[in-house]
């Protein structure tokens, strides 16, 4: 369980996060939703110990953040994180060099699933395929938690479908998944937990299915209430 307790973050004078708490459980797909600039990426960075917080606590399965964390969590940021002159295979080899949790068999599956060519150089790939490489490098790790930052942003509709399939596939089975997105449409059916961020706070945290059952509202309906009302 990733436990985020009362985290605060400030950029200069601007308060970005103002007391945010929530948890991410194993076997669930959670989604941080909010308009751009609301601090979604900051939260992911904070979980990965990539940005200091003003205050608050983050623990992974009850443990503090250290470099051994990266054997438990994979983060797939919204930026290419392999070297541009590397090809897909070299990128995978790099991961295999450092991560005990690198699962080569699974990596092979993903390459096949995404129809990637291992000898393609990253700087020659389309944006969609670069996003796929990023997913590949994160999903092939045998880790308990996966964080994804805006996995659909700026990606064509076919790639988007492929990525959506990932969420209901064995690739994320039994893992705790946390995604950030401002485009909920494609993945609404896939989510367990939805966390709505607004003005540095959690506006609403709910289970999508429960919301449909008890209030008859879709996630988009709730978002509309928040951001329009």
């Amino acid at each position: 369980m990733i436990e985020i307790t009362d985290i605060h973050k400030q950029f200069g004078r601007k308060k970005v996060l103002n007391g945010v708490s929530f948890t991410v459980n194993k076997g669930e797909i959670s989604c941080l939703v909010g308009v751009n600039g609301v601090g979604k990426t900051t939260i992911l960075n904070a979980i990965m110990n990539l940005t200091p917080l003003k205050s608050g606590k983050i623990s992974i399965d009850g443990e503090k953040l250290t470099s051994s964390l990266y054997n438990k969590i994979a983060f797939i940021p919204d930026a290419a994180i392999s070297l541009p002159h590397y090809n897909v295979q070299e990128s995978m080899d790099f991961m295999a060099d450092y991560y005990d949790t690198w699962n080569a068999r699974r990596a092979k599956d993903i390459v096949t699933f995404f129809r990637l060519n291992p000898s393609d150089k990253l700087h020659d790939l389309s944006k969609g395929n670069q996003a796929k490489v990023n997913l590949l490098l994160g999903l092939a790790l045998d880790v308990d938690y996966i964080l994804m930052d805006e996995p659909f942003s700026g990606i064509d509709v076919f790639t988007r479908e492929q990525i959506t399939e990932v969420f209901s596939s064995y690739l994320v089975e039994d893992r705790g998944v946390l995604i950030t997105t401002h485009e909920i449409n494609d993945i609404e059916h896939l989510l367990d937990k939805v966390i709505l961020l607004d003005e540095g706070k959690i506006y609403k945290e709910f289970n999508a299915e429960v919301m449909r059952e008890t209030e008859g509202k879709s996630v988009i309906d709730v978002m509309r209430e928040v951001y329009n009302g």
């Binding site: 990539l50 990266y70 983060f75 994180i81 392999s82």
Partner: peptide, 13 residues
């Protein structure tokens, strides 16, 4: 575009 710092800082070392 390539924020390789992500990769480096997230190595389990």
């Amino acid at each position: 575009k390539n924020t390789f710092a992500y990769r480096l800082l997230m190595l389990p070392i």
